[in-house]
Design a protein around this nucleic acid. Structure first.
Lengths: 357, 357
DNA sequence: CCGTTTTTCGGGTACGTACCCGAAAAGGGC
DNA sequence: GCCCTTTTCGGGTACGTACCCGAAAAACGG
C-alpha cells in the first residue's frame, strides 16, 4: 500500500473547475444539469468533461448526497419448493453489496396458489413510494396492472423468472423458456434413439399463456425436427392441475396403465420430484427422467439415479441480477441490457455439487 | 428519493465516540488497532463496537484514506485459444467495479509454449512490490517458486484455473478437474450403452502431474465404475504433444486405422477443435465427441453437430472471481472461501448462446 | 517535588462530491 | 441615470472516515 499519487487531480470536478475558470459549484450544476448556468459556460464545461472523460466518484457522490433509494421486491414465497428461497438469497446478497450506497429494500412475498395475496401486495407497494420494483409476474393480468401503475408514476421495474412481452420494463432476467425446452429435447434425443416420451405439466393454473407451455413448445419442436424415419420419437402429454404428490401419483398410474411404452419423461418444472417419487416406488426398468430446478428433493432423486438431468434456471442469480439491474439503472444511471437470459444449466449427479444457483 | 434520516448517527465512529466519551480520533485508533490507547478505553470502545455492530463505511473509508492497492495478474496470453481472453475480460470487469476503491492492476501474460516467458514475468512481478497476485500456475515448479516468494514477503496470492495443492494461497478458483472428467464420463455413458471410447490429451508438455491427467482419471473411473457385463465400454487413450492441426490429424489417422471401432472421443481440453476438424473432413458415421471450452472454433463444431458436448469452465468468471477474492481479502479484510470450484457446465448446440463464461 | 520522557488523547483538516446561501453581474423599465 | 428583478456564479460546509500534530496526562528518575 502506498499513498495515492496526485494523479487524482487530473480528473474530478476540481480539475474541471480549474480548466474552465469557474467554481466547483458551477461544474456541479452542469453535471446535474441544474439551471443557473449560462449556455456559454455550460458548453465549455461539457467540452472539458468529455475531453478528460470525467467519471464522477460514486463513493464521494453517494457519501455527499445522502440520498436513499427504496426498492421493492415482489416474488413468490418459498412454500413448496426452495426455488424462491434461492432467489431471496440472491436478493439479499445483492442488497448486502449495495446497501452502503444507501439502498433500502422491502420484500413482498405472495402465494403462488392464491392470486389475492399478489393483489394485496401490489396495493401495499403502490402506497410505498418506491424508486424501483423487481417482480416475478406470475399472474399476468395483475402484474400488467402493476406495470401500468409504475409506468404512469415513472417508476422503473424489472421482471424476473418469467416475462410479459411488450411492457416497458427496464429488464427481463430469467430463462429463455422456449430454448430451455429445446435443450431438454436434445438430452432426450441423445439418450433415446427411438421410442416414446411423455411431457408432464404440473401446475395449479395452466392457462393458455402459461410459461410452462413455452417450454413444452421448445421441447416438442426439437423432437419433431430431429425425427427421422429410422430414429423416431413419439410425444405424449398430460397436464396435472392438482399438485399434491398423491394426485400426481394417481394421474401417472392411470396414464401408464394405458401407455406401457413410455421411455422418457419430461416434466416442465420443479415438480419433477413428484414424478420421481412415483417412478421410484413403482420399480420398473429405468426410464429417462428430466425436469427442472435443484430443490433438495430433486437432488435426492438425481443422486439415486431416478432423475437423469435437471435443468437449472439460476434462481439465486436471478434475484441478484434483478436488484443489480435496478441499482445500475437508478443509482449509476447506466443503461442495462433489456433481456438477460440466464444460462440453461444441465445438472447431473456428477456436477450438481459444484452448481451455483 | 428522499433525504437520508438522521438514523445514520446510530452507527458510525461519531456515535461510538459519543458513547465512549472519547474523541473520534481515539475510536479510529482502536478500529485500526494503532498504538496510543490505554487498555481500559480500548476495551470500552471495542465493547461499544460490538454492541452496536459497527461496520465502517467503506465508501468514506476508502475516500479518506487515499490508499492504493496494486495487484498483479499472471495468466497465459490468448494466442491459440480464446479461453484466456475470456479470463482477461473477467479480470477487467472486476477491475472496472473496484477501481473506484483505488485498485491498480497490472497484467502479465506468458506463453503456454514457453516456460521462459513465465519466469521472466515472475521476475518482473517480484520487482513490482504488489499487494496481491492472481496467477494461473501452469508451470508447477516455477509457480511454486513465485508462491514461496510471496509467502516470505507476506503477499497474498490466488490460484486460478488449476491448483497446486499444499500451498498457502488464499484461494483456488477453477474447476474440480477430477469431477469434471467424471461428468464427461456420464455423458458418454448416457449416449453410448456399449462400445469403445478414446481419451485424447493434446498439450505441449504432459508431465505426470499435468492437470489434464486429473480429468482423465475422473473420466476413466466413472466409465469403469459404471461398466456392467451387459453394458461395457472399453477405454483407449493417446497423448499428442505436437499441437498443430496437422499433427493431430496425422496422429488420429494412424490411430484410427488400427482401431476402427471407436464410438466416442473425449478430448481433455479446448483442443477438441483439432479433433473435430479431422472428424469432419474424414466423413464417417457420427461418433460422439466431447471436449472443453467455448472457443469460437469449438462453437462452430458444436453448431454443425460434430461436437456433441462441450464442458465449460467459466474462464471469465474465474478471472472475475480471482480479482474479487483478492479485493475481499486485502481491502474488505473479510475471509474468502479457499476452494471456489467453478460449475461444471454442459454446453450443447441448444444452450450455448445463453452460456456465460 | 520538579523536570523529562512516554503514553494517551482531542482538535482539526483532508478525501471528492453535493448543495445551500448569498453576492456579483446582467437585464429591464422608468 | 437609478432601482429592481433575474440570471449567473463562488464561497463554504457537510457526508463518514483517516490521520497529522500538538496538548494534556501519566509515568519515571533523581
Amino acid at each position: 500500500m502506498k499513498e495515492k499519487p496526485s494523479v487524482s487531480q487530473l480528473s474530478g470536478v476540481k480539475e474541471i473547475a480549474r480548466r474552465a475558470n469557474v467554481s466547483i459549484a458551477t461544474v456541479d450544476r452542469v453535471i446535474h444539469n441544474r439551471k443557473g448556468v449560462s449556455e456559454a459556460t455550460k458548453e465549455k464545461i461539457n467540452g472539458i468533461i468529455k475531453e478528460i472523460g470525467f467519471q464522477p466518484n460514486i463513493l464521494a457522490s453517494r457519501l455527499a448526497s445522502k440520498k436513499t433509494n427504496r426498492f421493492a421486491f415482489l416474488i413468490p414465497n418459498a412454500n413448496e419448493t426452495d426455488y424462491w428461497d434461492a432467489s431471496l438469497k440472491g436478493i439479499e446478497r445483492a442488497h448486502q453489496e449495495i446497501k452502503q450506497y444507501g439502498i433500502q429494500l422491502d420484500k413482498y412475498l405472495f402465494d403462488l396458489n392464491d392470486k389475492a395475496t399478489f393483489t394485496k401486495n401490489v396495493n401495499e407497494i403502490a402506497k410505498g413510494d418506491y424508486d424501483g420494483i423487481v417482480m416475478a409476474p406470475s399472474f399476468i393480468e395483475e402484474a400488467t396492472e402493476l406495470a401500468a401503475r409504475c409506468q404512469s408514476r415513472k417508476i422503473p421495474y424489472v421482471f424476473i423468472n418469467s416475462d410479459i412481452p411488450g411492457k416497458n420494463n427496464i429488464a427481463y432476467i430469467g430463462p429463455h423458456l422456449y430454448q430451455s425446452g429445446c435443450q431438454a429435447g436434445q438430452l432426450v434425443r441423445f439418450g433415446l434413439k427411438r421410442g416414446k416420451v411423455l411431457i408432464i405439466n404440473i401446475s395449479r393454473e395452466i392457462d393458455s399463456y402459461h410459461h410452462l407451455l413455452r417450454k413444452e413448445d421448445g421441447f416438442r419442436h426439437y423432437i419433431e425436427d430431429s425425427n427421422t424415419a429410422a430414429n423416431h420419437i413419439a410425444i405424449e402429454k398430460m397436464d396435472i392441475t392438482n399438485t399434491t404428490d398423491e394426485s400426481v401419483s394417481v394421474a401417472l398410474d392411470t396414464f401408464l396403465k394405458n401407455h406401457t411404452d413410455i421411455d422418457a419423461f419430461f416434466v416442465t418444472n420443479s415438480r419433477v420430484r413428484s414424478v420421481a417419487t412415483y417412478l421410484r416406488t413403482h420399480a420398473s426398468p429405468h426410464r429417462i427422467l428430466i425436469g427442472y430446478d435443484l430443490s433438495g428433493e430433486n437432488i435426492k432423486y438425481l443422486k439415486d439415479g431416478t432423475i437423469d438431468f435437471l435443468i437449472g434456471q439460476k434462481p439465486e442469480e436471478q434475484g441478484y441480477a434483478g436488484l443489480m439491474a435496478l441499482f445500475q439503472h437508478v443509482v449509476a444511471g447506466s443503461t442495462v441490457i433489456k433481456n438477460q437470459y440466464m444460462p440453461i444449466d444441465i445438472i447431473t449427479k456428477e456436477n450438481f455439487e459444484f452448481y451455483k444457483n
